[in-house]
Simulated assay, not measured.
Amino acid sequence: MARRWVATRWGGLDGWEFQEVDLPEPGPGEVTIRVTAAGVNPADYKHVSAPRAGVDLPAPIGYEVAGVLSAIGPDTEIASGGGAVGDAVVAFRISGGYATEVVVPAKDVFAKPARLEDAAAANLLLAGSTASQALHVVGARAGETILVHGASGAVGVSVLQQAAELDVHVIGTASEARFAEVRRFGGTPIAYGPGLLDRAREAGHGHIRAAIDTVGTDEAVDVSLELVADRSRIVTIAAAGRATQDGFQAIGGGQPESAAYRDSVRADLLALAGSGRLQVPVARTYPLADAIEALAFLQEGHPGGKIALLP
């Protein structure tokens, strides 16, 4: 008997339940994973906050996990090839990762790099693929300087590291308490708040070519629009309304083109992490049974790194 978190009604966390469930045996193209860590993301609660197409209640929670293969369907290989019971793996994009055990499509399962701890591995791919797509859609190129709003957050930290791989310099907004984190991953930190436009212009020496917004504030959008003339080189993951209004790009995992891109880069991100060139700072871990407490901490807005649930 497995246990998992589900949303039983639309709305807040008070509609979630930690339920027992009988798992079926994996069929062709499926595997069962005994979860060792589940990644925690804002999308986990945002996607069940209100009715949406393709999501039915009760809705299992959680999009990414690390774990161990406990069963494999007939004639089935995982996405990275092979796969045997007992192998350590990572899975993304799946449904129902807040669980002790889960049956998932084998195409979404990859061998876990040995150097990655489970809590970090379980938090690599959602933020990492979002960061990769953001850099892709703004066309970040070697030698350029770009502006990243929220550079010390999970997506921002991944942008910093992936930008460095492209030889792209990042001016990153953050609170002063998080400046060291931005510098740690190669960015130049600047404080958000009054005067941001002047600080960004000065830090970028007037040559900021693109902007990535991970925070969704009007300040972030307004500064991006002022600094980047070509609106095709501005992207947000958090201000879709402003993107529609002002004619720049918004991306999200629910968009078919976003999902396809993010799926396409999973193996590359795992390879980067396996080589040590892409890190996932982990702030806290919680027992799986304490998922509500973990999400309440995340909703405070400044976790200082990723959060993982440990069954």
Score class of each variant (00 low, 15 high):
192 Y>W: 11
147 L>C: 06
25 E>W: 01
97 G>W: 02
128 G>E: 02
171 I>V: 15
282 V>Y: 09
111 A>Q: 13
25 E>V: 04
258 S>L: 01
67 G>N: 07
253 G>T: 11
201 R>I: 00
118 D>H: 12
273 A>K: 11
243 A>N: 08
216 G>L: 02
174 A>F: 09
243 A>W: 07
73 G>D: 06
129 S>D: 03
29 G>P: 03
208 I>P: 01
48 V>E: 08
78 I>F: 13
45 Y>Q: 04
251 I>A: 04
108 D>T: 12
24 P>K: 13
138 V>H: 02
163 A>I: 02
132 S>K: 05
144 E>N: 10
82 G>S: 08
232 S>W: 04
93 R>L: 14
171 I>G: 08
165 E>Q: 15
183 R>D: 06
146 I>M: 04
191 A>T: 13
167 D>L: 01
292 I>V: 15
77 E>Q: 15
301 G>E: 11
209 R>H: 04
108 D>C: 05
99 A>E: 08
30 E>W: 07
264 S>W: 14
249 Q>E: 12
169 H>Y: 01
86 G>N: 05
124 L>V: 03
140 A>W: 06
235 V>T: 11
133 Q>L: 15
48 V>C: 05
248 F>N: 08
112 K>F: 05
303 P>K: 10
294 A>C: 12
10 W>H: 06
185 F>C: 03
284 R>I: 00
174 A>P: 08
220 A>H: 07
301 G>N: 11
101 E>G: 00
140 A>T: 09
171 I>F: 14
252 G>I: 00
262 R>P: 01
123 N>L: 06
66 A>V: 08
278 L>H: 14
232 S>D: 15
239 A>G: 06
278 L>V: 10
249 Q>W: 00
249 Q>C: 08
216 G>N: 05
171 I>C: 10
206 G>F: 07
293 E>W: 00
156 G>Q: 11
164 A>H: 13
40 V>N: 02
270 L>D: 04
134 A>L: 08
203 A>P: 07
150 G>I: 07
144 E>M: 11
301 G>T: 11
131 A>P: 11
184 R>K: 15
9 R>G: 14
226 E>N: 13
255 Q>I: 09
72 I>Q: 05
142 A>Y: 09
290 D>T: 07
158 S>C: 14
242 R>Y: 10
268 D>Y: 10
83 G>F: 09
72 I>L: 12
170 V>F: 09
202 E>T: 14
191 A>N: 09
173 T>Q: 02
79 A>E: 09
233 R>N: 02
306 K>T: 05
304 G>C: 12
196 L>E: 04
101 E>Q: 14
